[in-house]
């Protein structure tokens, strides 16, 4: 198990190194000079040159890459070209919104999807299954921003249980923060829950047809006992894969929901930075997201091994 974890860890570090190279150079080759952009089209060439020197844009690319990576390793993400504030502070503020939101949404989605998927699989072809599958079909089909607007209309405007947008901040306490993230988290979670429930159902149905389920019944387990003791854990592998992918999506892809709820999240930050050619912020946020995705995949790999002993011994 330890060897397996170490192997995955090595692959994690290699992935991060490759990703940082790709991100840096892809963004570098994108057209548009940040100094020129900041000073406007009519700026004098020597002013632009001075700003380039100040921003550290005049040294060779390789040196800038190494400076950037070295800085990130020590917590220094550089200074935003547009706002002239440390990128680390900007990102940290946003991360405190996006990360809890993603975890919150994923928790809701898992809590809905697992019971729904297991219920549907256990009642395959019967009314309960048809109802759950119909609901998930809807969940997959409805765009989450429309759903978000409906949530606002019902729970914020009519019932006044939640505020329609904005983020209260964590300094007012955990509850206030969670409260303002609840509607966005639900809006993000439902389509994910629909997909996850379908994966759970089909994965479990595959397992229910396996020989060892019949063996379990021959030992005297009831249908339900066999399902819980032998079915669910075996069905988890594909489900874990999807959960990993969904987390990545929730971190980076929440921009529309952030827009609907006026949340100061990473999605909006990256959008604004791209429009302003604030390349250092874009690089840092993208790198951060890549880091998050790779770490999540690493955790998913560890979870696979925890679920399936065959992976532990394979290495």
């Amino acid at each position: 198990m330890l060897r397996y974890a170490l192997k995955r860890l090595v692959s994690l570090i290699v992935s991060l190194a490759v990703a940082s190279l790709v991100i840096f150079f892809v963004i570098e080759v994108a057209p548009g000079d940040p100094a020129q952009f900041m000073l406007g089209m009519n700026a004098q060439p020597d002013t632009v040159a001075a700003l380039r020197a100040e921003l550290g844009l005049d040294v060779p690319k390789w040196e800038r890459y190494l400076n950037w990576v070295g800085g990130m390793l020590t917590g220094d993400f550089g200074t935003s070209y547009t706002y002239r504030t440390p990128v680390a502070d900007m990102v940290a503020d946003r991360l405190w919104v996006s990360l809890p939101l993603a975890i919150y949404a994923l928790t809701i989605s898992t809590l809905i999807a697992f019971p729904a998927g297991i219920y549907a699989a256990a009642r395959r072809g019967r009314a309960g299954d048809v109802a759950v599958m119909g609901a998930t079909q809807l969940g997959v089909a409805i765009p989450n921003f429309w759903f978000a607007m409906m949530l606002v209309l019902v729970f914020a405007i009519n019932l006044r249980w939640f505020s329609a947008g904005g983020f209260a901040g964590w300094d007012k306490g955990l509850w206030a923060g969670l409260h303002s993230l609840t509607l966005p988290a639900i809006a993000l979670a439902l389509p994910q829950a629909a997909i996850l429930a379908r994966v759970m159902r089909s994965s479990l149905l595959d397992i229910l047809g396996e020989d060892f389920m019949r063996t379990a019944r021959a030992k005297g387990l009831s249908r339900r006992q066999a399902l819980w003791r032998h079915g669910v854990r075996n069905a988890l592998i594909p489900v874990l894969t999807i959960i990993g992918l969904q987390f990545a999506f929730l971190m980076a892809g929440a921009i529309i929901i952030e827009q609907v709820f006026y949340l100061p999240g990473l999605g909006r930050l990256i959008f604004q930075s791209i429009s302003a050619r604030d390349l250092i912020v874009v690089e840092s946020v993208v790198m951060l997201l890549v880091f998050a995705v790779i770490v999540v995949n690493f955790l998913v790999d560890l979870a696979y091994a925890a679920v399936d002993p065959r992976l532990r011994s394979r290495t």
Partner: peptide, 17 residues
């Protein structure tokens, strides 16, 4: 009644000892 099946490769749950 105990029962033994044909295919031993798949008759056991792979994730339990």
């Amino acid at each position: 009644v105990g029962m033994v099946f044909q295919e031993p490769m798949t008759a056991l749950n792979p994730v339990k000892t």
